[in-house]
Design a protein around this nucleic acid. Structure first.
Lengths: 253, 253
DNA sequence: GCTGTTATGCGTAGACCATACGCAGAACTA
DNA sequence: TAGTTCTGCGTATGGTCTACGCATAACAGC
C-alpha cells in the first residue's frame, strides 16, 4: 500500500483521455471551433496523401482552415497528435476469429489484416512509437489477436508473447517492403527493378573471398529476381506459426 | 541488353564510396582538415552520449571544433551521415560460426550478438533506414549469419529469408525493450515499475466486456510483473528457430 | 441584464534545424 | 610564377515546434 496511490493513478496525458472519450467539455468559455477527431482526421488525410514527413502542425492547420497554434488547444504536442494518428490509422480491429477458424487460421487472418493496413498506410511504420499500445483501437487489435489463442493450452503470458512476436513480424516485413517501394520512387526506378539493381550493386561491391556466403546467395540469383512480396510474407509467417505449433503441441502433452 | 548500362552502373552516393574506401583524394587543392571516419566517430559519440535526436550537423561540427558547413565537404547530406553511423555503430560482425556449432547454435549466437549491439546503442533503432544494407559491416553481419546455415538443406533464397526473419525479430524485440526503458526515463519512473504501471493503466481503461481476452491476460497478472527482458527474447527466438527447424527437417526429407 | 470567470483562437517570436550558395585562400601542376 | 582546383566556412533561406500572452466569446450567478 503506497501512501498516495489513489485509484485514479497518475495523470493521463490529455491525448489518451480524449482518445478514450474521457474529456468532458467545461461548461464555460466559448464553444470550441474544432475537435480532436477532426484534427486527427485532417492529419491522417495529409499523411495518406503526402507521407508522414508532410505532417507538420502548420500543414494540418491549413488543412482545417485554422491557425497553427489553434491546434495546441486540442493536443498537447505533436507527439500526442502522432499517437492519435496511429490509433485512427489502424482503424477498427478485424474482429474476433470466425468460429470455424482454429488458432492458426485465426492468427493468419489477423496477421493479414495488419499487413493490409500497413500496406495501405505505410506512414504508420514511420511514426516513432514511444511506448506500449494504450489507445482504444490498438488494444482492440490486441484483444482480437489474443482471442485467436483462446482454445489453446498456452499460458496467458505465452499468448501475449506469441502475439507480440507476430505483430512484430508483420511490422518488420511491411517496413522492408515499403522501404523498397519508397527507395524505388526516390531513385526514379521501376519498383520491379529495385531488387535486381540492389543485387547488382552488392555484387559489384563485395569481394567473394571476404563474403563467401553472400557471394553464393548472389550467384544463385536470389536477389536479382523480383519475387512477389506476399510470398516472402507467407514464408516468414508460416515459419513463426510452425514454431508456435511446436510449443502448443508440447504444452498439450 | 540495355543501351548504356555500363558495368560501372549508376553513380554511387558519395557516402557509399567512402564507406568502401573507393574515394581517392584528388591531387590538387588544400589538404583536408577532417576525414569521413572522424566525422562519423564524432557523430556516433554524440549519439551514444545524448541520443540520436542530439545528432545535428552543428552539434557534430562542434564536437570536432569545425564549422557546420565544413561537414558538407565530406558527406552529401545528413542522411548519408546517418547511414555511415549505422555502419560504424554496428561495428564488426561477430565472425563466422564456431566449428562445433550447428546451425541453431550459430544463429543463436549471431542473434545475441546483434541483440547486444542494439542494447548498447539503442539509437541505431531510431535511424530511419532507407533501404537494404549496402555498407561493408552490415554486409559482413549478413555474411556471417548466412554461413550459419551453410550445412543445411535450405535453398539460398530460404537462407536469406530465414536471416531476414531473425534480424527482424531481434530489432523488433530491441525496439520494444528500449521503448520501455526510454519511456520510464521520460516519465521519471523506475524501469522495473514501468510494466506494472502500464498494466494498471490498461486495467483502468478497458471494459472487461469489450476486451475479454485482454482482461483475462491482465487478471493473470501478466503485465504486472517485471519479467527479465532476456527471457522474452529467448522465448521468441526459440519459437522462430523451432519453426526453421521444422522446415529444415521437412527439406531433409 | 450585468458582471466575473474561464476557455478559446491565434499572432508574435524564439530557438532550433538542414542546406544552397559563394568567396577567400591553400596546395598542387606546369 | 601562374593557373587550377579543392577546402573551410560565413551568410542566408526557409522550414520546424512551441512558449507566451492578449483579445474575445460564452457561460454562471446575482
Amino acid at each position: 500500500m503506497a501512501a498516495k496511490t489513489d485509484d485514479s493513478g497518475p495523470v493521463l496525458p490529455a491525448a489518451i483521455e480524449s482518445a478514450w472519450g474521457l474529456r468532458e467539455r467545461p461548461p464555460k468559455g466559448p464553444r470550441p471551433g474544432m475537435s480532436v477527431p477532426a484534427i486527427v482526421d485532417a492529419a491522417v488525410r495529409v499523411a495518406d496523401a503526402d507521407g508522414l514527413a508532410a505532417v507538420s502542425m502548420s500543414r494540418v492547420a491549413k488543412e482545417l482552415g485554422a491557425a497553427t497554434m489553434a491546434l495546441y488547444r486540442y493536443v498537447g504536442s505533436k507527439d500526442e497528435l502522432l499517437m492519435l494518428m496511429v490509433d485512427a490509422g489502424y482503424g477498427p480491429s478485424p474482429g474476433p476469429p470466425a468460429p470455424e477458424d482454429d488458432w492458426r487460421a485465426g492468427l493468419t487472418r489477423w496477421a493479414w489484416a495488419e499487413h493490409e493496413v500497413l500496406r495501405q498506410r505505410s506512414w504508420l511504420l514511420h511514426v516513432p512509437i514511444s511506448g506500449p499500445p494504450i489507445t482504444p483501437q490498438q488494444l482492440g487489435w490486441m484483444d482480437d489477436g489474443l482471442r485467436c489463442l483462446d482454445g489453446t493450452t498456452l499460458g496467458e503470458g505465452e499468448k501475449m508473447s506469441v502475439l507480440l512476436l507476430i505483430t512484430g513480424y508483420v511490422r518488420n516485413e511491411a517496413t522492408l517492403t515499403s522501404q523498397i517501394a519508397e527507395g524505388s520512387r526516390a531513385a526514379g526506378v521501376d519498383p520491379s527493378e529495385m531488387m535486381p539493381a540492389y543485387g547488382r550493386l552488392v555484387a559489384r561491391l563485395i569481394d567473394p573471398a571476404r563474403f563467401p556466403a553472400l557471394h553464393r546467395v548472389l550467384s544463385a540469383g536470389v536477389l536479382y529476381q523480383d519475387d512477389d512480396p506476399d510470398d516472402e510474407f507467407v514464408f516468414g509467417l508460416d515459419r513463426i506459426l510452425d514454431g508456435v505449433e511446436v510449443l502448443i503441441r508440447r504444452r498439450a502433452g
